Simulated scan of single mutants.
Amino acid sequence: MTLEHRTMAAFLAVARFRSIGKAAAAVGMSQPALSRKIAALEKRLGVPLFMRHAGGVEPTLYGQTLLPHAEAIAAEAGRAVAEIDELRGAGRGLASIGVVPSATTTVVPFAVNRVIRQSPGALIRIREGTGEQLRAALGRGEVDIVVSGRLDEPVEAGLLVTPFYEDRVGVVLSATHPLLSEGRPPPMAADLLGYPWAMAPKGNVIAFGFREMFLRQGLEPPRPNAETSSVHVLTRLVASTDFLTVLPHDVVQQEIRAGILSCLDGEAFAWRRSLVIIRRSSGALPPVTALFLTELRKASSLRSLPPLTPAP
């Protein structure tokens, strides 16, 4: 059984507005026509999708189960229209990318610049988030590909994971931090417990590595005092206070060379992280997304990236 796009659009409108009248106006249908379409869908599925009450409608358990699939169908239809528009010259070309924040400061700027040099009319929409958030967005059809740290847990059905590159992650602190005071012995893991921590939210591979770093030393991981997915906020906070954080070394190279930040030496405070590219296993990538993916892989092979230059 197939579910056609217009029926899914009607279902999504009712689920979103919780009102047949408002949903009908949103999709440009009469209320009776919309009601008949929903009734026909319920008959095909053999289950009620909405509960009717005086204040409007609410999705049933069956409706809630259908919702993410309807969102994926609607997103796929939108991408198809965008690709057709691009082919007939009416569109700009769109790539929707999900990226963990640490990658936005390294390979992503390089790839964006290269794509725009080759396709000046393209639009690259970049969404930041934790790996968990971005995989969920990929499943809903909100992004085309995801750059994320590799988790050891199984990936959802329908997603394809391919290796990207590895980087080194470790403890980052101010270059003038008390732990680096002249004459002080090299810090031990236990010494790090006496300072506040700023970290990425749970669901991030780096946050997982942070916990493992202390557990390997037989210590209970400290509870972060500040939490943000913004690399900019993390680096600024650590640079101006006694806070500690954990970040990929690539991300803070400029601040290290400028004498603003430092990384703790020693294998106890650093480890390697594997990044992966995740996409849906079915369906072709939009043209601009395919080009962006090619340039991402070029960026990872360079790793020592040239400075960005404006598009001609």
Results as ranks from 00 to 15, higher is better:
L151Q: 02
A198D: 04
S30W: 01
F50L: 06
A39K: 13
E295T: 04
A200M: 14
A95T: 06
L237S: 06
G139A: 08
S174W: 07
A136L: 11
G21N: 08
V107R: 01
P120T: 05
N204L: 00
A9H: 07
F164G: 09
A70S: 11
R16E: 15
A157F: 10
P187Q: 13
P163W: 07
E166M: 04
R52W: 02
F292A: 03
E42I: 10
S119C: 05
L160A: 14
P307S: 10
A9C: 10
E42Y: 08
P185S: 08
A175W: 11
I278Q: 08
P201I: 08
A10W: 00
T176C: 05
L151C: 00
G194H: 12
V57W: 03
L34I: 02
L34P: 07
K202S: 13
D152N: 09
E83I: 14
V205W: 00
V233R: 14
S229E: 15
A10M: 03
H5F: 05
T176W: 04
P154L: 10
L215Y: 00
T241R: 11
M213W: 00
V252Q: 10
T7I: 09
L138S: 08
G121S: 12
A270F: 01
P312T: 05
E76W: 01
I116N: 02
T289R: 07
N225L: 13
M51S: 14
R279L: 03
V155A: 09
T309K: 12
A175G: 14
F17Y: 15
F17G: 01
L192F: 06
I145C: 06
V276D: 11
H5T: 15
G91L: 08
H53G: 09
S240E: 15
G183K: 02
A95K: 01
S119N: 11
P120I: 02
P59G: 05
Q217K: 12
V161N: 02
H53Q: 12
L308N: 01
V99L: 03
L296K: 06
Y165F: 14
A95W: 10
F208Q: 08
P306D: 12
L264R: 11
E227D: 04
L67K: 12
V231G: 08
V147K: 05
A175E: 03
Q31F: 00
R168H: 01
A23R: 05
G183T: 03
G194V: 03
A9F: 00
D250S: 14
G78Q: 09
A258L: 12
S300Y: 00
A268E: 14
G91V: 07
S282W: 11
M199T: 11
F50K: 05
A290K: 13
S148M: 06
